[in-house]
């Protein structure tokens, strides 16, 4: 009884897909953003799994960088959301229609 590395990857794929679906079906910009974070985490999980598969710490380093960048991204992203809210009085993504043709 043991866990093949593929299981972790499948889990990561599932989390990634769930995150992607969440981005698509949620209207709140904040929740969409959370789903993006979920997707980032699933990728991190993949990286860490591969680091283990290959017996190398490089994957973990990359995951570390992803975390750092995600932190920066969240900082800016949330600031943007706050601004958007100031502009629209809403965090509904569908209210932002300026890209409409």
């Amino acid at each position: 009884m043991s866990v093949p590395a593929g299981y972790y990857l499948i889990l990561a794929a599932a989390l990634f897909s769930i995150g992607a679906v969440g981005v698509l079906i949620r209207r709140s910009v904040i929740v969409m953003f959370m789903c993006v974070e979920l997707m980032l985490n699933s990728v991190n999980l993949t990286l860490v799994t591969f680091a283990r598969i290959n017996a190398s710490l490089d994957g973990q380093v990359l995951a570390f960088f992803v975390i750092v960048v995600a932190a920066a991204e969240v900082t800016v992203g949330l600031a943007l959301i706050v601004n958007l809210f100031r502009l629209r009085a809403s965090t509904d993504a569908d209210q932002v229609g300026a890209l409409r043709a």
Partner: peptide, 17 residues
């Protein structure tokens, strides 16, 4: 094609996906 440009970010995200 312009009709595809609904302006909804989520539609674009869907297209990306």
């Amino acid at each position: 094609g312009a009709r595809l440009q609904t302006g909804f970010v989520r539609s674009y995200a869907l297209a990306v996906l």
